[in-house]
Design a protein around this nucleic acid. Structure first.
Length: 116
DNA sequence: AACCTGACTTCGG
DNA sequence: TCCGAAGCCAGGT
């Protein structure tokens, strides 16, 4: 076993997406950072596009840093939003979700985000 | 090899 | 809060 990290960034991202629990969401930048490339937010999107296993991935739990869905209307937006709402994720009037509350926290488990 | 595009992010007005 | 421009990385033409 000389190299075990044979997994490409692409593979690591998919693995992370599968870990996102139901009712939670993650941003492209977040997944990229967890995969070791905080600047590769775009590649995360590419990974989903190129991924053949997308049907097995909770891709709908991946949104942008603004807490909104990036896909255009009639281009997947409605589908993604429907899937998220089905998981109890609430959307605001401007289609934005509260990342403070719905963003997936892989390590922090639960920290009293006292917030001010 | 060069150029262009993209399910992104961040900053400034 | 909304819109536009610049930066970033990888794949496709």
């Amino acid at each position: 076993m000389s190299k075990q990290k044979t997994l490409s960034f692409h593979e690591r991202v998919k693995a992370l997406i599968r870990k996102i629990p139901r009712g939670k969401v993650a941003t492209y930048g977040q997944l990229a950072a967890l995969a070791g490339q905080p600047r590769a937010a775009r590649q995360v999107a590419w990974a989903l596009h190129s991924s053949s296993d997308k049907d097995k991935l909770p891709w709908h739990r991946v949104i942008n840093s603004q807490g909104t869905i990036s896909l255009p209307r009639m281009g997947g937006y409605e589908v993604q939003r429907a899937l998220l709402e089905k998981e109890k994720v609430r959307f605001g009037l401007r289609d934005h979700v509260d990342l403070e509350r719905y963003q997936w926290q892989p390590r922090a488990a639960r920290t009293k985000r006292g917030k001010s």
